[in-house]
């Protein structure tokens, strides 16, 4: 009996000793030291309630405790897709990743489901137009794409997603401008980890290339300069205005490696968190995802027009 009491007391002492503070630098996403006390902000060594020793079962709810609609602990509100205004102005700006619930003040018409429900990903090895389970039957949460402990990638994106190693560079590592992109090379790699069948980078893939027939025909090329490789047929029909700096019809789209290669990435046209774009025409009733705005940045097929300027 005495042994039991002793063990219980030791366990209690350890449990209390492991309860500590959340943040070292305004957020728990790095800045740890060898004797950091930041771990217990999210984890419990012996009294955890969720997977990975988290304090609660719902990972996304943990993230939303700071980054949710009230943004009570961050300037980044991913529910509404808003970046807190810089000092001197009250109006926030649209978050470059979009919002899960709202974007530009309107309800999202499509978004990644981070609720933790079992998730299939389109183009995840089964071909384009086919949704397949993630590796190991994993569900999608914020932590599927972001590493809350920080990473060497852009926007603390994970270095391994869906069993795929990811490298996503950032032009300026010190940049904190979440409303304007800082994309370097490989920005699409994060999307390709789950949607690899859509990650077509072959020159000329926009034309009827026989080599692509096995994967369902031609596909828009990704990772190429917006105005094409000189002389390739794939870029016939392009407009002359840079879609990022000039745009078309009042709309612009972000490009990677701005000012040097100006490449088109997945995120040039799609908002990874979610979008409020409206699908009112053909897209509203077409295909297996009728009415789904498929994370597109602009209404209907506005993203096509910004580059192709028809």
């Amino acid at each position: 009996m005495r042994k039991l009491i002793l063990i219980t007391m030791i366990a209690m002492v350890l449990a209390f000793a492991l309860v500590g503070v959340a943040s070292a630098n305004g957020g728990p996403h790095g800045g740890y030291t060898a004797t950091t006390d930041a771990c217990a902000g999210c984890h419990r060594a012996h009294t955890a309630s969720g997977a990975k020793l988290l304090v609660a079962a719902d990972t996304t709810a943990l993230c939303f405790t700071c980054h949710g609609s009230n943004a009570t602990g961050s300037v980044l509100n991913v529910t509404d897709g808003v970046l807190e205004a810089t000092a001197g102005s009250n109006a926030g700006t649209a978050l470059n990743g979009g919002g899960f619930g709202f974007y530009n003040g309107s309800a999202t018409t499509s978004s990644h489901d981070t609720s933790g429900a079992a998730t299939d990903a389109w183009g995840n090895g089964g071909g384009r137009g086919v949704a397949s389970a993630l590796a190991g039957g994993a569900s999608l949460t914020c932590a599927s794409c972001h590493d809350p402990h920080g990473s060497s990638n852009y926007r603390i994106l994970k270095t391994t997603v869906n069993n795929t190693t990811i490298a996503v560079a950032q032009v300026d590592e010190g940049a904190q401008t979440y409303d304007s992109e800082q994309w370097g090379t490989g920005q699409s790699n994060i999307c390709a980890a789950c949607h690899n069948d859509y990650h077509i980078t072959a020159a000329g893939s926009g034309s009827d290339v026989a080599g692509l027939a096995a994967t369902g025909g031609t596909a828009h090329r990704i990772g190429m300069p917006w105005n094409g490789d000189a002389g390739t047929a794939a870029y016939i029909g392009m407009g002359t205005a840079n879609p990022e700096t000039s745009g078309f019809g009042g709309y612009t789209l972000p490009l990677a490696e701005t000012g040097t290669n100006d490449t088109v990435e997945c995120q040039t046209c799609h908002l990874p968190h979610g979008t409020s774009s409206a699908m009112t025409g053909f897209a509203a009733s077409n295909g297996s995802v009728a009415g789904d705005s498929v994370l597109l940045r602009l209404n209907n097929r506005g993203v096509c027009e910004v580059c192709h300027q028809k």
Partner: peptide, 14 residues
């Protein structure tokens, strides 16, 4: 107060 570990230590006070 409330930083650190032990009785009364806080994680994310609101």
């Amino acid at each position: 107060f409330g930083q650190g570990s032990g009785d009364g230590a806080l994680s994310l006070p609101r």
